[in-house]
């Protein structure tokens, strides 16, 4: 029987890897990919705990999975909009280097 901690640890590892990817990569698309990785690791953690709590009742168990369902939808919307922004930026500057986009300031 696989202990719950194993799943959670795996999720944590994936999350950290994704975080490193966000910080290390230079192109906006790659950063985006890393963010998706982080989201997915969170999903895994949620499903794990859903399984863990399923003993306490159907609602407790299924709520975790429902949350994942919703997170998935949100990720989909976010990807759509994010990629749209990306395309728009690319049209404007012919580059997706985030260091070049140093305009989020006053």
């Amino acid at each position: 029987m696989v202990p719950t901690e194993a799943y959670v640890a795996l999720s944590g590892v994936m999350f950290s890897i994704g975080a490193v990817g966000v910080l290390t990569r230079r192109s906006a698309i790659m950063i985006f990919l890393s963010v998706e990785l982080m989201l997915n690791s969170a999903n895994l953690a949620l499903v794990t705990y859903a399984y863990q709590w399923a003993e306490a009742g159907m609602l407790a168990g299924i709520s975790g999975q429902t949350a994942v369902f919703i997170i998935l939808s949100v990720a989909a919307a976010e990807v759509a909009v994010g990629l749209g922004i990306l395309v728009a930026i690319f049209r404007n500057r012919a580059s997706t280097d985030v260091d070049a986009l140093a305009e989020v300031r006053l």
Partner: peptide, 17 residues
């Protein structure tokens, strides 16, 4: 971060259902 998360997971053992 990875170390912290793994430690956090291991320090909170759950009874496998």
């Amino acid at each position: 971060a990875a170390a912290g998360l793994i430690a956090g997971a291991l320090l909170d053992p759950r009874q496998a259902p």
